[in-house]
Each structure stands twice: as C-alpha cells, then as structure tokens.
Write a protein that binds this DNA or RNA. Structure first.
Length: 421
DNA sequence: TCTGGGGTCCTAGGACCC
DNA sequence: TCTGGGGTCCTAGGACCC
C-alpha cells in the first residue's frame, strides 16, 4: 500500500497559547520570550514581519513597543498542558500519531479511505474548536515531503487553506523546484553551504542527486532525506517513545555569579529537576556531567567553560547521592575570578530500572532510596514542584530566572482559573 | 547591562583483541 | 624500501531539530 503521512503543526504555538486566554489580544501582535526574557522564540503572524526568530529582546524592545506588540515571558507549564490537549484531539481522529515536538505531530494516513483533504480540514476545525489553537496540515507520501507540504501551506496557501496535499507528483515537483535546499527538514546551515558547492541549490536538485554520492560525501541521513524528497518513504512513524538516552537540565542565571556558594545552589536545583525527569521515565543514571561557563558574547570579559564527567558508584536516581556528587564535581571545575552565566547537569548512560541488577549492598541502598524518592515525587506532584527539596536548594534564589512578563497558570494553577459570572 | 533549553543521530578515531 | 587486517567498543564532537 502506498504510504501516506501528514504533519500537523500549531501556528505560532506559544503566541497562540497566550492568545487563547487573552481574547482581547486577538488582533494584537504577540511575541514570546525565552528564559530570562532573552530572545524572541515565538511570534504571532502580525509580529513576524517586525522581528526575526531568536533575536535578542533588548535589541528590539523599543521597536516592538512602538508597534504595540505585547511580549510574554515563556510559560512552559501552560504550553505543555495546551499541547497535550491538542494531541488528544488529533489522536481521536486518526489511526496512529507520533508526537514529534511540543507543537507538531506526524500521523499515518496509509489506507485511510475518503478525501484526505477534507479530513485535514476537519482536524483543523476540531482542534480550533476544542482548544482555540490554529493548526496547519501537510499531506504527502513521505515524512520529509509532509514537512515540506506543511511549509508550503504557510508560504503559498491562501488563509482559508492551511491544508496542503502534495501527493500529486505534479504538485510536489512544483514545490520542490520553488524551495531552497535549506528549507528541507534535516538540512541545516552547514549542509546548505556544502550542498551549494556541489551545485545543489533547491529541494528539487537534492531529490535528483545521486544517493550513493550523498551517502559517501555526508551520511545516510542526507541520503535518506534525498530519497524521501524523491518520493520513497524511508522514515516510519515512531509509535512508542523510547525512554530518553540522556537527560539534561541547563539554564542561564538571572544574573552573573562569581562565588561558589550560589553556583552550588544552582547545580543542586538542576540536579533536582534532572533527577525528576529521570525517575519519571523510570531510568537510572550511571554517569553525570556537571559543567559551568561564563558568558560568550562579551569579548572584553575573560571566558571559561569546563565540565567534569562523574562515574556514579552504581546506577542511581537518588537525589541525595546525585546532589552530593554534583557538588563535588562543581568544586573541581570552579575557578575564581570569572563571572558565570550558566550551569548544566547532564545525566548519561541511562538504563531502565529492572534491567539492572546490582550487588546486594547497592540493591539495599537502591530500595530504600526508591521509597524516599517516591515520597518526594508524590508530595511535589500534589503540592507543586519544590515543595519538598534537598537542603542545598534555596526557596527563592538570587540567581533565579528573570521572567517579568509571564502570564498566569490558566490551566495549571487553581489561582489562574478563569472566573465566570 | 542584556543573546534559550533540551534533545537526537551519525561519524571518526583511538584502544583493544585475535 | 616495504612492519597485518579486521572486528568491536567507546568517546568526543559535529550537525541538526524545535
């Protein structure tokens, strides 16, 4: 059977989420900022011509204010919750769904009877009605082409559209010829430059290139991308999300830190968050990497970036052990005289609980740790993150993120609920 | 003054083994 | 002159994505 995929993605997702709860802003341009209100990471359609993605906020703040643009700090609890709602609606309408990112899903429509264009429009309507979030739908014979169809929907479709079916070769050849190779999924900046040197400029050129040569020059990934553009499906829908192979928590501080003590607090805080994620997927870590760095943009400031890899005594998810070892690691990389901007905790070499059988000593420790961790996670789930925490983590930190423009927890906190009447 | 965070996959190259 | 060859495992680093 000929495979058929669709990619469904939310338009200006973070900005749309904010707008759902602020109908007064339905025509106002909106931007959403990264942590610490650093750069622009989402723009509503009206704001798109004014600023580029990733632009530092401080550079465009005045310009935006001049145009009446409303800025929000990012509110990930809200976006995560809205994402789940969108995915649930789509899941009820298709045979199989792969959540690809917070605002995108691939679906497998192979063998679906009926008019797929109509199905696409139904999905769009229902998601909009049930969640308030507008989505676009791209349909094609491969995942890479479905991505491109989605891209084409934004670039060429009239606004009544938002659904583009590229199964017809005449249509997708037309789109391939119009698209620069850099617009193809999987082709970033570097590859674009290298492909250009080989006279491959458009998506069409890439689809016609010799797969063997691409494999030899680059990798199988590029080869598959080219084959997919040519219409041969190489990438399947990934059904069950396998557990993550590494877990990371890294964050810029709200202000530069010089002393060891606040860095220790930050590292302890990141360990707490990373270990929560670890336990959520029922994994244990064998190794951990702790690193710190100064800012990178100021040329006058001395730079330093370093990290250490820690071998854990046995695979563990024990917050207490991880915190202790992370702080020791921090002491080893810390140097005086620098203004640090960021710390990172990476949990590596993960294995699933149950896959691992330790010796008797560590088994006993693991069992008692498991009970303590279950209590911590249970309390925090019920009463909010950070209710129960290790003593190394402060209640309110001087280095905490700046996010002065944050919306309320409309769907995630009782205090944020709307009152009607 | 001020520039995000969290992932994945692939390859190259070194160490080691027979 | 000419110093094996092939396999595996591990790690670091590059590139990409949203």
């Amino acid at each position: 059977m000929t495979p058929v995929f669709a990619l469904i993605d939310c338009n200006s997702f973070y900005a749309s989420c904010e707008r759902v709860f602020r109908p007064d802003l339905s025509r106002t341009p909106i931007v959403v900022l990264s942590n610490n209100d650093g750069c622009i990471i989402a723009r509503s359609a009206e704001a798109k011509p004014l600023v580029k993605m990733g632009q530092p906020y401080y550079q465009v703040k005045e310009l935006l204010q001049g145009h009446g643009v409303v800025a929000f700090s990012s509110n990930y609890a809200l976006y995560g919750d809205m994402s789940q709602r969108v995915m649930t609606v789509i899941e009820g309408m298709v045979p199989a769904l792969e959540v690809y990112s917070i605002d995108e899903a691939f679906v497998d429509l192979t063998g679906m009877p009926g008019d797929l264009d109509y199905l696409g429009r139904c999905i769009r309507e229902r998601v909009l009605k049930h969640t308030g979030i507008p989505v676009g739908v791209g349909i094609a014979g491969t995942k890479t082409l479905a991505k491109l169809a989605n891209h084409a929907a934004k670039r060429w479709a009239s606004h009544s559209g938002w659904v583009v079916d590229l199964r017809d070769p005449v249509k997708y050849h037309w789109v391939l010829k119009k698209c620069d190779v850099s617009e193809v999924w999987g082709i970033g900046k570097r590859l674009t430059a290298q492909l250009r040197d080989m006279a491959i400029r458009t998506a069409w050129d890439l689809s016609r290139a010799d797969p063997a040569l691409l494999r030899k020059t680059f990798s199988v990934v590029v080869e598959k991308t080219a084959r997919e553009l040519a219409g041969t499906s190489c990438l399947q829908l990934e059904h069950a999300q396998p557990p993550r192979q590494e877990i990371c928590c890294s964050r810029m501080f709200g202000q530069r830190l010089t002393a060891l003590a606040p860095l220790k607090e930050a590292v302890a805080t990141y360990v707490m968050r990373a270990s929560e994620k670890l336990r959520q997927q029922r994994s244990l870590a064998r190794r951990m990497r702790v690193s710190i760095r100064t800012g990178m943009f100021n040329p006058d400031e001395p730079r330093y970036a370093n990290g250490v890899l820690v071998q854990l005594p046995y695979p563990t998810d024990d917050l207490r052990l991880l915190t202790r070892m992370a702080q020791e690691a921090l002491e080893r990389v810390y140097r005086q005289g620098f203004r640090y901007s960021k710390a990172e905790v990476l949990l590596l070499d993960l294995c699933q609980r149950g896959e691992y059988t330790g010796d008797l000593f560590s088994a006993q420790q693991t069992q008692s740790a498991e009970r303590v961790m279950a209590v911590i996670d249970g309390v925090n789930q019920r009463w909010g993150r950070g209710t129960l925490r290790s003593a190394a983590v402060p209640a309110a930190a001087e280095w905490a993120m700046r996010r002065g423009l944050m919306s309320e927890g409309f769907t995630t906190q009782v205090a944020g609920l709307w009152r009607v009447g």
